[in-house]
Simulated assay, not measured.
Amino acid sequence: MKKFRGVFLKNEKEIGLMREANRIVSRILDELGENVKPGVPTILFEEICRTRCAEYNVRPAFLGYQGFPFALCCSVNEEIVHGFPSDKRILQEGDIVSFDMGVVFNGFYGDSARTFGVGAVDPETKKLMDVTRESLHKGIEQALPGNNLYDISAAIQSYVEGFGFGIVRRFVGHGIGSHLHEKPEIPNFVPKGMTGVPLKAGMVLAIEPMVTVGSYEVEILDDNWTAVTKDRKMSAHFEHTIAVTSDGPTILSASE
């Protein structure tokens, strides 16, 4: 593993381990999505995650991380990220639920997130999810050697704001490898007065736009973890872990 401007560059073996970690995350997210329906308590998804981690012999990446008490971040409607699964929170028709899941496989991390509709969702909410998902791919397309990190940010911001949605500023993407959060930070907007780092083959990045129907301003609930939109309007979240290669970006957490 080499370093470039404080960023760890992964070799082929390390990227292979991360590909496997992310394959496991993707499979778990697939299963979570299959179980999203009205009437389901969100604690069910936590139980699925812990069961599958045990079966795959991997460690849940988030459980205990800086004191986080669950394996899964499960965020409903106005909850942006870091929501708690609960036996009291029952999914309702028209809700949306975001799952952010990570595992550690042979010392390397996988990390990915998806938002699912619960039954039939209204057109604006469906558009929110579609735009957020597509903005992630617009950002990934810019993850090319020789581009600047903020080319990713600009692509996401331009796409999202073109539809009139807001982009959360408080939480950003990140490098990932043998640590869950590594340099560089990857904002989903272009910070004023800042210079992004050049992208180089070997970088592995977790890109994760969090998009809102209304204001991008955030509040943290009394549990000290759950982030919600200040105006309590809907928010969606999609994330992929990708490798920057000489042939272009490779999505490590793509669903099979």
Results as ranks from 00 to 15, higher is better:
88 K>V: 09
240 H>I: 03
39 G>T: 09
250 T>K: 13
124 E>D: 12
191 P>S: 09
167 I>Q: 05
63 L>K: 08
252 L>N: 00
157 Q>W: 11
231 D>V: 09
181 H>K: 14
9 L>R: 08
202 G>S: 11
230 K>T: 03
35 N>L: 10
109 Y>L: 08
31 E>I: 10
225 W>C: 02
71 A>D: 03
234 M>D: 07
143 A>G: 11
149 L>E: 04
54 A>Y: 06
234 M>K: 15
217 E>L: 10
97 V>Q: 04
136 L>Y: 13
207 I>V: 15
114 R>K: 15
237 H>Y: 14
157 Q>V: 06
105 F>M: 02
240 H>C: 12
40 V>S: 01
133 R>M: 06
47 E>Y: 08
135 S>L: 13
37 K>V: 09
183 K>Q: 13
57 N>E: 14
80 I>C: 11
142 Q>P: 02
11 N>Q: 10
243 A>H: 07
51 T>W: 08
35 N>K: 12
166 G>L: 07
117 G>H: 12
96 I>F: 09
164 G>R: 09
10 K>H: 15
190 V>M: 04
49 C>T: 14
223 D>Q: 11
8 F>L: 12
74 C>V: 15
148 N>Q: 06
101 M>I: 12
140 I>T: 06
30 D>Q: 15
226 T>G: 00
253 S>G: 01
98 S>W: 11
46 E>H: 07
30 D>N: 14
6 G>F: 14
186 I>T: 04
3 K>G: 10
107 G>H: 14
242 I>A: 00
96 I>M: 10
112 S>V: 10
98 S>I: 11
22 N>T: 05
